[in-house]
Design a binder for these strands. Structure first.
Lengths: 135, 135
DNA sequence: AGGTGGAATTGACGGACGTCGATACAACCA
DNA sequence: TGGTTGTATCGACGTCCGTCAATTCCACCT
């Protein structure tokens, strides 16, 4: 149950490129496809709230029984969304007795943050102005 | 043509919360809905490549005529994807003579990066281990 | 063994999304 | 003015996605 995430974005050293450089180099098709899967998982309000509830939990993990009642949705629907988040590599889970607990996988979130972080002193002199937005 | 982005995520100071804290506080429905729109825009390989091509451009802007031939898709389809990226507030454009130029809106990318960046010394003692991943 | 309660899977349905061809619009040029 | 080229919009079509009710699976408890 803990081995369903997809190995994306050159995790450690197998694919060569550590974190595809979205903002500085044109993404190739393969990278774009993998990255899109993760962003697509984030592209739903319910999944975002689920992820947020899991990530912001003090102990680091949440019981499904605490997540489901927070939504006006059926239990299978919540289970479905959790599965998608897990397949995107954003969370993982474990059954402990009767209940199932979910927790955040910080590596994937960190990778996304890095991908969306612009290099510090880049040669980008406010491109919006350069386009003539003043007039 | 330059006023179609959606005003999301408490841009400067009107909505109170600067950058919804995805990872430290449970997102409310409104925030989740707005954020999901942006991530949904990133959840497509073609749009990711378009955004990457635009963001990584030296001059800061790209002509549509340079983007379209890079894909094996029809011209209306590319135009459609560019529109979605623009509505998500990720890019903007301007017609200059015969051609239309697109550029990145760094503010939105920065906001997403901030949302996905975990607070430095957070009380998260490797939650994956605490769950019993060692056994 | 049988029963109970929590969570995942299955199958079905309606709406959203990506794609295209055809068309409309805008700017340049002869 | 009419023709040409670049870009956006429209309408349609097939597929994917979010949702549910029904069912199955799993662990616990008599």
């Amino acid at each position: 149950m803990s081995k369903q995430e997809l190995a994306v974005l050159g995790q450690d050293s197998d694919s060569g490129t550590c974190c595809p450089a979205l903002l500085t180099t044109p993404l190739d098709e393969g990278q774009a496809g993998e990255l899109a899967k993760v962003f697509k998982a984030l592209g739903d309000p319910v999944r975002l709230r689920l992820l947020s509830m899991i990530a912001s939990r003090a102990g680091g993990e949440v019981c499904v029984c605490d997540l489901t009642p927070a939504f006006d949705l059926s239990q299978p629907t919540i289970s479905h969304h959790l599965k998608l988040l897990r397949q995107a590599g954003l969370i993982d889970c474990e059954r402990r007795g009767t209940w199932v607990y979910y927790w955040l996988l910080p590596e994937m979130v960190d990778r996304l943050a890095a991908i969306l972080t612009r290099p510090a002193g880049e040669a980008l002199p406010t491109p919006a102005e350069a386009a003539g937005a003043s007039a």
